[in-house]
């Protein structure tokens, strides 16, 4: 009995929050003019979200690529097609691991920072101070961070893919001794520009929008206290991760169905 009451309450509260988030997104879009008119605001945020994520993205991608190279070669060798390791590494990265892992890392590196920053600005009344100076905080603070995230995510995913493929190359060619030409040739013959590359790019763009929106929303909606901001930061990472994986399933089902 109590359980159902609790379940109902949770559902209602989640729906209300979802509605509020949608309204917030609409308001954010109407207030986005400043982010483009004064593009240096967005560039500044791209420094904090994009450039500052480069190291973690690069290092993670290198190791993911190397692990893929080792594991895939191990499996492919059993079927006598060890030469195809480049193809498998590139396909796994482009279709799934690149967009998804880059987005997960982006959520925990940049998303949490955005939430904490906006939440702290709220807690220290900086947002209200801005409002009282007749400056709309959603236009001045929130929207540039959102757009910076949207622009950074596909670029980070592309870099993740390249570094990951390079990691796979390091394992396949110098270590295992697969011929350099075969590695790249097999890859190029079997990776499709539209089907694999463009679809992967669309995924990373969708993830970028989702993570950035969650991050700025949680920050803007945070309880203006120390606990409130820390809870909001945690929620950003948790919600983003779940949403990325759910969206990934939906997008994969839409893009790679059939054949």
């Amino acid at each position: 009995m109590n359980f159902f009451a609790w379940l109902g309450r949770i559902t209602l509260r989640s729906l209300a929050r979802l509605g509020f988030a949608a309204r917030f997104m609409g308001f954010l879009l109407t207030q986005s003019g400043t982010s483009f008119r004064r593009f240096h605001l967005t560039i500044r945020e791209m420094y904090f979200t994009g450039v500052m994520s480069l190291v973690i993205i690069g290092v993670s991608a290198l190791f993911v690529g190397m692990v893929l190279g080792l594991q895939m070669y191990e499996v492919l060798k059993r079927f006598g097609s060890g030469d195809g390791v480049g193809t498998v590494v590139a396909l796994s990265l482009l279709r799934e691991l690149g967009p998804v892992l880059a987005a997960l890392l982006f959520a925990s590196r940049a998303g949490s920072a955005i939430t904490a920053e906006i939440g702290l600005m709220k807690a220290t009344e900086q947002l209200r101070a801005m409002e009282m100076m007749a400056v709309e905080p959603v236009a001045r603070v929130v929207a540039p961070r959102f757009w910076a995230g949207v622009f950074s995510m596909p670029l980070l995913a592309a870099l993740f893919n390249v570094v990951g493929i390079f990691g796979g190359y390091l394992i396949a060619v110098p270590l295992i001794g697969i011929d350099n030409g075969i590695f790249w040739g097999q890859m190029q013959a079997n990776v499709d520009f539209h089907y694999d590359l463009v679809n992967g790019g669309i995924k990373s763009l969708v993830f970028g929008i989702a993570v950035s929106l969650i991050a700025v929303f949680e920050g803007y909606d945070a309880q203006p206290t120390a606990e409130g901001v820390s809870a909001a930061t945690t929620r950003t990472v948790v919600t983003s991760s779940v949403v990325i994986l759910m969206l990934d399933f939906v997008l994969t089902a839409l893009m790679f169905q059939g054949n």
Partner: peptide, 18 residues
């Protein structure tokens, strides 16, 4: 950052996929 990202996309388009 942006230049590197675009270079990555071009690399993926030309060297990795057909």
């Amino acid at each position: 950052f942006v230049a590197a990202g675009i270079a990555a996309v071009i690399f993926l388009a030309l060297r990795v996929s057909s």
